[in-house]
Write a protein that binds this DNA or RNA. Structure first.
Lengths: 241, 241
DNA sequence: TCAAAAGTGTTCCGAATACACCCATGC
DNA sequence: GCATGGGTGTATTCGGAACACTTTTGA
């Protein structure tokens, strides 16, 4: 079979139409962090195929829409949150990955501070639940592959870019930050050294606020300094944890 | 407008068909390395749209095929090479990126040792040429964006994974390797330190062969030790240059 | 003998590591 | 008081950077 080059299929519209027959979807690995564990938000499917199975948050993309807008829309419909941090990580295109047709899906991951998350009733989700990434159920479609690739990507990116902060509330203590990185990277850090390293980067604004109602000395609260981050990025700065 | 969830569009086939109308293509940033410079292989288009413009190596994906098979096929048709190193890096889906319809393209980059490259006559390419990444022409479609993202991805990945070796012949000297990394990263290295660092990784097999006919002391030849690399990778080893 | 690149050894400095120690709070 | 986590200082070690030096070849 001759497969003509992409942009030269002009002889007949019908020939082009043969190629314009893919479905496009977004599947989003929604990461959260609570109780010292990294979690993923999954949806229980209420329709065939894979009715009753757990699945990633995802949807078909309408021809008038694009990927990131679709991802924003579906995440807002589920959590009520706008402007969630989100990054594309990989595209999955196995021919038989979707039983109803040739659907290519683009994987995104997003990071949400889950205290803000409010479950929203939805026409297509029977229920949603946070799962620890250590105890995952079987997933619909090829979502286990997508999820694993998403976890792997997050673990790598979190070392070189300060994305981890997206998982914490806007004010946090250094020890909370350390605990987050320990959970993300499955690795222990030395407390004094972690503090020194992270403070030397000048990415944190110390606030004149402290923890309250804790049964130990209250810790100082910090905030991520986005302006400083953008300034450093321009000079070709590396995060490197 | 209600956009139903991806996997629940089952009421009417016609409804599903509305969503199965995307085109899918591959665009490949083919990197080579000669004369101390990193180069990219571009194609001169011989058809509308963008007739006469330079473009990335790319093609529509047929519904019976998948991305990596399509990328392999097109690269083989152009260079005669099989089993070229290739990795997916990003998916581009701007609504208006293709004048003939809604075509989403997946960016790959590949690394070829260009001595092996033989230009192949092709029905769709008027000519092909290697361009230094410092002197690029204007490109068709959104290929400039794809190319820049590809360069950026290569520069990042080359630091943390030993992919650079794919750009060298199977036998090379340490100084050739250093020159490659200097070109890739636009950064000078100290010769003794570079040698120490790279040899300590145990990724190179020293061969009992030497350069010939050079007007200076002949350098020892090395080969990339893929077995050793796979062994180290299992233990959770990081390349880190 | 000279140019050019191969290849080695050594010093120096800064950063990461490993600890030991003190502080503030609730119970 | 004591348990708990907050927070600081320091001695030591290790790795990277800088650089001087020797070796081998062709011309």
């Amino acid at each position: 079979m001759k497969t003509p080059n992409a942009y030269f299929v002009t002889e007949k519209p019908s020939k082009l139409n043969e190629y314009l027959s893919f479905g496009l979807s977004v599947d989003c690995v929604v990461f959260g962090y609570h109780e010292g564990e990294v979690k993923v938000l999954l949806v229980e499917r209420d329709e065939e195929p894979f009715k009753g199975s757990w699945a990633l948050v995802g949807d078909l993309v309408h021809p008038d829409s694009d990927l990131s807008a679709s991802a924003d829309r579906i995440l807002e419909s589920l959590t009520g949150l706008k402007d969630i941090f989100m990054e594309q990580f990989f595209t999955f295109d196995a021919i038989d990955r979707h039983p109803l047709g040739r659907v290519v899906t683009v994987g995104y991951y997003s990071l949400v501070e889950s205290e803000y998350y409010k479950p929203v009733a939805s026409s297509w989700a029977k229920s949603t639940k946070w799962f620890s990434i250590r105890e995952l159920p079987e997933l619909a479609f090829d979502h286990d592959i997508i999820l694993q690739k998403g976890i792997q990507t997050l673990k790598r990116r979190v070392r070189y870019r300060p994305v981890g902060f997206e998982l914490l509330p806007s004010k946090f203590t250094l020890y909370e930050l350390q605990a987050l990185y320990e959970a993300l990277l499955d690795q222990k850090f030395d407390k004094p050294n972690f503090r020194k390293k992270i403070l030397k980067m000048n990415l944190l604004k110390p606030l004149n606020e402290f923890q309250e109602n804790v049964s130990h000395r209250p810790a100082k609260l910090y905030a991520f300094d986005e302006e400083q981050y953008n300034a450093l990025k321009k000079e070709g700065f590396a995060f490197e944890l």
